Amino acid sequence: MKLQLLRNATLKLDYAGTTILIDPDFGSKHSRPSFTGRSPNPMVELPVSTDEILAGVELVIVSHLHADHFDKVAQELVPKHLPLICQPGDEEKIRSFGFIDVTPLTDGLTYEGIHLTRRDGNHGSGPVLEKMGNVIGLTIEAEGEPSIYWAGDTILYPPVREAIATFAPDIIITHSCGAKWDGLLIVMDAEQTVDVCRIAPEDTRIIATHMEALDHATVSRDDLQAYAKAHDIAKHKLLIPSDGEILHLSAPNA
């Protein structure tokens, strides 16, 4: 498999012969308002053009409708004929943008030999949960490919721990910028990401994303790397890609 981190949560995944675009956010630097007064968002430009991002894409996954996961620019530029998978409850809104092949991931489905399973996520805790709304993660499997658990916009809480324990993925993709809303954590921070490294199977690699793009983040890549080093997490265990970086990863026994 080949995985490219584009910016924030936006990923391009080549997997089992299919090119998948996950959570496209195509807005230009500083095109949206600030969350905290620190900076307009997104704080950085995309590392490559949207034409390059969209080249070859065959399937789109949208985990939820926050602007940094499916913004107005992406809603316009992503070809409307592409099959799009979303969380239950978002399908009618996405169809209103002109997309014609929208499927809610209620439990599991198979696309071109790739099996996708919905996983629960909590976009925060306590009173902030209602403000953030519903989100999903998902697991991805195909013959000859490493299994993936893409946790999505969630904190580390019991269903995430359970998904790691029961699915035992080869790769876990976390959102690790420590973003906060009303003072409460709404995605994983350095401590929770390191906890994921500790509870994951020994050979599992964790890929930390969703960093250095939004002004309500509290953890940078350097912060996470330093925290992981201080807590004896090996570099090969926790990967922290830069925007635009491409990772080539194989199944353990491939």
Rank of each mutant, 00 (worst) to 15 (best):
L238D: 09
L21K: 11
N8S: 10
D71R: 02
I164N: 08
F99E: 00
K29H: 05
T117D: 02
L138Q: 09
Y15Q: 12
D120N: 07
R95A: 09
Q192S: 14
V102K: 01
L239K: 09
G17K: 15
E91F: 02
L77V: 10
P79N: 01
N253T: 03
T117R: 14
V60F: 03
I140D: 03
T117P: 11
G37E: 00
S31C: 01
V128Q: 01
D51E: 14
A9G: 06
I246W: 06
D90V: 02
D182E: 15
P33F: 13
E191G: 13
T106M: 12
D232L: 15
A55P: 02
I100F: 10
H64G: 04
S34C: 15
V102P: 01
S147L: 13
S242Y: 11
D14L: 15
I164C: 12
W150K: 05
V128C: 04
I148Q: 07
M188Q: 10
I140S: 03
K2T: 14
E143W: 02
I85H: 02
M1K: 02
H69Y: 12
G17I: 05
H81G: 05
V219A: 13
P201A: 15
A234Q: 14
L82Q: 03
P104K: 06
Y111V: 13
N253R: 04
T18S: 12
K80G: 04
